[in-house]
Amino acid sequence: MKRQIPLMIVLILGLLFVAHVFIPNKLSSDYLDWFMKWMKVIGPFAIVLGVFSLVYVHYNKIKRKAPTWGYSIVTLTALVVTTAVGFIWGIQEGTPYMWIFKNFNVPLGATMFSLLAFYIASAAYKAFRARSIEATVLLVAAIIVMLGRVSIGQAITHWIPDITEWILNVPNLAAKRGIALGVGLGMTATSLKIMLGIERSYLGGKD
């Protein structure tokens, strides 16, 4: 029963969601709205689990004086301070919470994101080394597409932007659609496996 009841819930709700795709009736959309409200209710309960996990892991690190336990103090201090100022002064514009968000969170996130530019350059170097015929084709295609996307490409010859468009709209789009087709079927198959109870690992590991 411990496994059958969740499996029954999955099957019934799964079938209702499938039915929603084909039934445009108000009843169907009302059901979806109702379900989404329940999803929102579950969220806050799960936050407790997340925060508990964070505190548990870092508290243990500090307690055991594990390597780099200093970082755990920073993490827990940040958690407590941010939560406290949020509860005391609120989270609107002009509050200490917003000051922390703007002066710590945003610049740190932006720093991580900007690293992407350097990482892309490094990844491009790896990808475009002409070690085989495929890599050479990739290199040539990439050079054409890059030139075709900037004004200098048009200045060299009008063929470059045209070839760029062709590469993006024909071979590139065909490959993307091929992958999307496989993904769509894979998703449907996985959903079917879950609904029919063939795939049960999400219930706790046992097949």
């Binding site: 997340g50 892991v57 969170n105 740190l108 996130g109 994101f113």
Partner: peptide, 10 residues
């Protein structure tokens, strides 16, 4: 198995 954060880059 632990939670880190919901912020993408963090």
């Amino acid at each position: 198995v632990f939670f880190i954060t919901q912020a993408q880059f963090a």
